[in-house]
């Protein structure tokens, strides 16, 4: 399972880099979303893949009786997804605002804060 997921992460990163190299801000944002999903998958895989059982300890025992899934990466990924969700929602609104006030999503034309060089 791990090799398969590693290849998937690679594909996601490749796609993300391709999208992020585009001049359009929207494509860049889509690339970022792909990249953050790749990062989340990387955390998930690095916790080692185990089959099935939820990490719950039955009443009266100190350790779970069988091999259970590693709960920590799941918690980390969940946190990262929630944070990423908030950041991208903000970035999306910012992109909409940028399009409204600057009239373009082409990153080459966004030179209000840094004037173009003369000549």
């Amino acid at each position: 399972m791990e090799p398969l997921l590693s290849i998937l992460i690679g594909v996601l990163v490749a796609g993300a880099v391709y999208l992020m190299l585009a001049r359009s801000l929207m494509r860049f944002l889509f690339g970022l979303i792909l990249l953050s999903n790749a990062a989340n998958l990387a955390i998930f895989v690095s916790g080692r893949m185990t089959a099935g059982a939820p990490p719950l300890v039955p009443d009266g025992m100190d350790v779970p009786p069988e091999v259970v899934a590693n709960a920590l990466p799941q918690a980390l990924v969940l946190t990262a997804i929630v944070i990423g969700f908030g950041l991208f929602a903000f970035a999306l609104i910012l992109a909409v605002r940028a399009f409204r006030s600057l009239g373009t999503l082409n990153t080459d034309d966004m030179r209000v804060a840094e004037p173009k060089e003369k000549g």
């Binding site: 801000l25 860049f28 970022l32 950041l87 006030s101 990153t107 966004m110 804060a113």
Partner: peptide, 17 residues
């Protein structure tokens, strides 16, 4: 303002990466 949005886009993009 226009300037803030323009600066903000670059700040947000690089910090997200």
């Amino acid at each position: 303002g226009k300037e803030q949005i323009d600066g903000g886009v670059k700040y947000v993009a690089l910090n997200l990466i």
